[in-house]
Structure formats: C-alpha cells, structure tokens
Nucleic acid binder design. Structure first.
Lengths: 268, 268
DNA sequence: AAACTAAGTTTCATTATTTGGGACTAATTT
DNA sequence: AAATTAGTCCCAAATAATGAAACTTAGTTT
C-alpha cells in the first residue's frame, strides 16, 4: 500500500520532489530537503539537479537554496489559458468587480478542494488571503458549498469523506450533517453564503456556474467584510451573480473551442 | 550537440511533453500530440499516462483531450509565494494602481524574456493582453528595457543575441544598436518608456527594482493607452514608481526570509 | 453487415537508465 | 589541525524505460 501517487516510475518520484520543495513554502537548502525525504542522498541530489536544469526548480547561488522554478509559472499560465473557464470569465469578473466595488473570486473544484482560478480585488482590498492558484476547503467557503450543491449525492459523499471539518471560526460547519442540510437550502436558493465560516469578519455570496445540462463548471463569489456590509446586503448581489454565471456558461458552450484556425506560430 | 534541455534522462523527456501540450494553447487529442512529437507512439503514450496520473496533465473524457493539469497551477502558486519579490510587492501594487488609477505590472527577467509575475488592472481595464505568468519580449516592452539597462554589458549582449527584433509596430526598435542606444538613456533617466513598441496605442513608463548593491530584482510599470494619456503625462508617475521600487527593494533585503518560525502544518 | 480504417492501448524481450553505498571535496566548527 | 557537516561524484548491480508489433475498440465505407 502507500504510494498512491508516486507509483509511476522515475518521473513520479522526480515530481514528488517538486511537492517537497513546495511544502516548505520558502526556498530551502539541499540538506533540509534530505531530512524530509526518503530518497537516498545521491538520488535526491540527482533529482534536484535534473529539476533545476529543467527550470522546474530554481537554485539561488547567493543563499544556496532551491525554490520552485519559473517554468512552473509559465506552464501554469498555459493551464489557465487552456482551461476554457478562466479566460472566458475574465471580462465578466472585471465587470462584476467594477460594478459592485467588491472582491470577486472565480473558483473550480479539484479533488474535493476549492481552487481559486482568478480574482479581482475591490478598489480597497480586503486583508484576506486568497490568490489565483490557491486551494481552500470546500465545506466552509461560499464557492465550495455552491459547487457541492450541484453534484449528485454519490459525488458529494465522496467529497465529504475528504473534508477535515476543521473549526476555523465559531460559525464553521463541522459535520457532514450540517453541511448536507445547508446544501439543500443552497439548491433551493441557487446561491450560498459564507457566514464568516473560514475567516472571521469575511463574508460572501456565491453562485455555481453550470451548463444548461447541469454540468458543474465552477463558481463565482462576491466577498466582503462584516465591517463593511451585511449578509442581507450581499444577498442583493445574488441575481447579478446568477446572470453573470449564466452568461459565462453560455459563452462556454457556444465556443465549443475555436478549432485552431489561428496558428500559434509567430512567436519564436 | 542538439538537446540542450531535454538532456536529462527520462524526467526531462517527460517534462518536454508538458511543453508540447502547452504549445497547442488548447486541449489536444493524443493523435495530435503524436504528429508533433518525435517519441514513438508507445513511449509518448506512457508519458502522457504518467503525467495525467500525476496531475500534471488533465484528461477530459468528454472531448478525449489532454490539457495542462491543475497540479501545475498549485505548484505555480507555490512558486509565486516562494519568490520573495511577488508577495512583497503585492501591497505596493495595490497602492500604486489605486493611486494612479492605471494598470500596473510587476515583471521579472527569465531567459532573456520578460515574465509578468503580477498585475493590477485599472478600474477601467485596457484591451491589452498581459497576465500573470505570461512571457513577453524584452526589447520592446517598458519593463524589459528597464531591466536590461541594469545589467552588465556581457549579460546584455547575451540577452540581445536571444531577441528576435520582430517589428510589432512602426515604433518597435528593430536592431541591437537602437536598443543599446536607448539603454544608455534609460540608465541616465532611471526609467524607460514603451512608445507603442509592442502594441499599437499602448504606452507605459517602467522602472527597475534593484537592491542597494545593484542586483536586479525585477521591474515595475504603469501602463495606459494613447487614447487616455500621453507619454509626458505618464512620465510624471516616474518618481512615484521609483519610490515604490525602492521600498520593495528595501523590504526584500530587510526580510532576509522569515526562518520558518511559523509552521505550515494546520492544513491537512 | 462485412470489410476497411484510424485512434487508442497493451505486450514483452531488449536496452539503457536509474539506483545508492560509499568515496571524495569543500566549508565550517571545535 | 582535527573533526564535523554539507555538498558532489562514481560505478557495478538492479531496475525501469523503450518501441516494434500485436491487439482492441470505435468510426467509416463499400
């Protein structure tokens, strides 16, 4: 047992080193990596060398540390462009954020977690820690709950089994039952709230983005702070959010991708 | 000769498949990959399988296509956080963009190219194609020229050799000589311009971000459109930009990283 | 409906690469 | 100067990658 993921040969092992470096959250020395890794020194060393060569890790000679490389950033940008959702939603997010003067998030569901794929700050940004590329819990965020509400029971059960139900704040839902009950309400309303469930003082309304046939694409939220507004006031934005979600979904299905008429060439 | 980059064994070859998928700019079928790849079918197939298993690629069963995976997005977010520049600059970008009501870019130099690492849209966003993670040419962007102006001659020569000098617009600098001459001016002024050299109608002022000891960290720019302002007016922002660049550099060297007092734990 | 075609998947003997203990070197500490 | 620690390199044994060809769908054509 064990190895669910690092099972695919040399490549899988090398990639696990990327996660290892990422897990430190800061550039690390080789010796630090070694203490946290089961690979023998020479093996780990070779992986680090290879990955650095490849631009997946970056070595800083001044501090003698390895960090995640810039090639990852380039590739991630490619991922962002390829995903049909984020580029299409872009203009809609601009419009929403400008119109409502609040922070707007676009998220997708990934392995039972919320992945924030885009964000627009309010003109006066909130002291809040979310960024494109960041992952967060599904059971206690507006976007997470909005998305869960659109899945069939079996899938929801699967995902619930992966939730930690850690109590971040006094209002965090900490049981599957509480969550399921709320999902029912969300299905009825078509939108979800974050009632300071993840960060104290931070509230939001969120709506799912679904195709006409009901397939989940992502979710959209407007976030603010209790010092600035109330849940009731935020709820007024729900119709605007639902329209935007519908517009995004429509563009998605309309543009069943552009069949490469345009050559990427030119660059070089 | 040949293989400068894909020289490191199986891992390098596998990673080259990521670039291949990225190069299409959209999700691709296996057969399409095959036509563009020199790997034998079975080999390419195994790489694609492995990478998909690993979350570096994502397979969409509906369209039978492979795209770049979500693990890349997570890792890239880690890269962004680890890089000392981007997280520190964040608040400064917010402030600049709010104060000047224009689009602000943060960029770094990577393999002779400009890599945009962060961006703040003006309230009224410009029809302009730049995003965090995107790469652009160094010789015809404000940030690119500002950074080149801070490097020693040998490095500049190296980088110039990698530039295409493609003429994007009538004002694009299309020779090494023209560029070198302008770099001289930039060194004298401490800031650079983009005179619609990359996109028609788009202009900017940029300043380098350098340590006290002169090491290049990145660049900062304020971008606008000819329909909205002029170069002369943009130049008024230069002192404000220089102050911000200095502040970012100061924070960078002050915070010679936080030595992990805070445990990443908690998550799960 | 049978024959053809193309895309995707699996097999397996051969071949090339990874593996990792340990030796070596450089830098820091006692 | 000796000891400790961090980083780098080597090479025979062990293992994993390779890729031609066979096989399985799925989609067309006759």
């Amino acid at each position: 047992m064990a190895d669910t993921s690092s099972a695919d040969g040399t490549v899988g092992k090398a990639l696990s080193v990327l996660d290892l470096v990422a897990s430190f959250g800061r550039p690390v020395r080789f010796a630090e990596l070694q203490t946290k890794s089961d690979f023998p020194k020479a093996t780990l060393y070779r992986f680090v060398q290879t990955l650095t060569n490849q631009g997946m890790l970056a070595f800083n000679p001044e501090t003698q540390t390895y960090g995640l490389g810039i090639r990852l950033v380039r590739l991630a940008h490619g991922a962002w462009r390829q995903s049909s959702l984020a580029p299409i939603a872009q203009a809609h997010l601009d419009a929403l954020s400008l119109e409502l003067s609040e922070t707007v998030h676009l998220a997708q569901l990934d392995h039972g977690q919320v992945l924030y794929v885009d964000k627009r700050n309010a003109a006066n940004p909130l002291p809040m820690y979310s960024e494109a590329g960041k992952v967060g819990p599904a059971y206690c965020t507006g976007v997470g709950k909005a998305m869960l509400a659109c899945l069939d029971d079996a899938t929801v059960q699967d995902i619930i089994a992966q939730q930690s139900f850690h109590r971040f704040t006094p209002t965090t839902l900490t049981s599957a039952e509480a969550l399921l009950a709320e999902l029912k309400d969300i299905r009825a309303d078509g939108h979800s709230f974050d009632r300071e469930e993840h960060e104290p003082g931070i509230i939001c309304v969120a709506v799912p983005i679904i195709t006409e046939r009901g397939r989940l694409l992502g979710a959209l939220s407007v976030t603010s702070a209790t010092t600035r507004t109330t849940l009731d006031q935020l709820e007024h934005h729900a119709p605007r959010l639902k329209n935007t979600a519908k517009a995004i979904a429509a563009e998605m299905s309309a543009w069943r991708f552009p069949d490469q008429t345009l050559t990427p060439a030119a660059a070089e």
